[in-house]
């Protein structure tokens, strides 16, 4: 036992020595190497000097995509506010969505897919943050239509209890709504394991597929997608709403807001006065 403890002690000392060597390297010789490298890069930048700004402003993938993911911490004393940093964004965000790891649509379309209709795009993306794509883009017909909708966890994909509680910030949920269909008498969620696996396999093998194979795969993946998605008024209505808000756990006061005159009236204004093309999506865009 004593021998074992002694060996363990030696092992810990060795680990500590290695750790200290790394630290010493970092603050001494490693730092010198880093300084020389940094100096070299700075000199290269200096050599570019004035007049070459246009060349330096060429949008690279790193600038446009990766640097947009920078984060910033505001030290307020009584708390630290950490958030995504967006250049020129004035208002503080102070909120992060957990990534939706289950949704297979966003693998290709991203999690802000709505951008065609100017008046609708931000609202579409807002709803996509707590409503699964299939809820609006899959119209279940006949016996498949169940009227059953449930919440799934963004991280695990599992069906969970309603995250909508009294006092919760509206739309800030770690879950999304997914419709259920009835196939052969069995109730199942629309994003079945088979559909998820097919889409994931497509992504995995995409580079090796021929153009025809890609077209076939896309056709199969989008087979369930309806040409005409459900629109605002299909849910924001007092009677016959597509989504069963009560069953989805919405408190009555939230339901009252969702189907309130303010919201419904605004949708009415949109559809009647500002963007009648919302009733015929795609048509006016093509024009």
């Amino acid at each position: 036992m004593k021998k074992l403890l002694s060996k363990l002690y030696l092992l810990l000392l060795m680990a500590f020595t290695v750790f200290m060597m790394v630290v010493i390297w970092d603050v001494t010789l490693g730092k010198l190497v880093a300084e020389f490298r940094h100096r070299k890069l700075s000199q290269q930048a200096t050599e570019m000097k004035a007049g070459q700004k246009e060349a330096s402003e060429t949008t690279t993938f790193k600038q446009a995509i990766l640097e947009g993911e920078k984060r910033v911490k505001h030290y307020l004393g009584y708390r630290v506010l950490e958030q995504r940093w967006l250049k020129g964004h004035f208002h503080h965000i102070d909120f992060d969505f957990k990534p939706d790891k289950h949704n297979y649509c966003i693998n290709c379309h991203g999690d802000m897919p709505h951008d065609k209709v100017k008046e609708l795009r931000a609202f579409g993306n807002m709803h996509a943050s707590f409503i699964g794509c299939q809820t609006c883009h899959v119209r279940l017909e006949g016996s498949a239509r169940t009227g059953v909708f449930k919440w799934y966890d963004r991280t695990t994909g599992e069906i969970v209890d309603s995250p909508v509680e009294k006092g919760t910030q509206a739309g800030a949920y770690n879950a999304k709504i997914i419709p259920f269909e009835r196939i052969d008498g069995r109730l199942q969620r629309v994003d079945t394991p088979e559909r998820v696996a097919f889409a994931r396999d497509y992504r995995k093998n995409e580079k090796t597929l021929t153009d025809i194979q890609k077209s076939k795969a896309k056709k199969i993946i989008h087979k369930i997608v309806s040409k005409k998605p459900y629109l605002c008024g299909d849910c924001h209505r007092k009677e016959g709403s597509l989504l069963p808000f009560k069953e989805l756990g919405y408190p009555q006061e939230r339901i009252n807001v969702i189907v309130s005159t303010e919201v419904v009236g605004m949708i009415h204004k949109y559809t009647e006065f500002y963007m009648p093309r919302i009733l015929h999506p795609g048509e006016s865009e093509e024009k």
Partner: peptide, 14 residues
Amino acid sequence: NCLLCHKYPGLSRI
């Protein structure tokens, strides 16, 4: 009543 819409964290676009 701007927060009617702008209170939603997902209200965004590219």
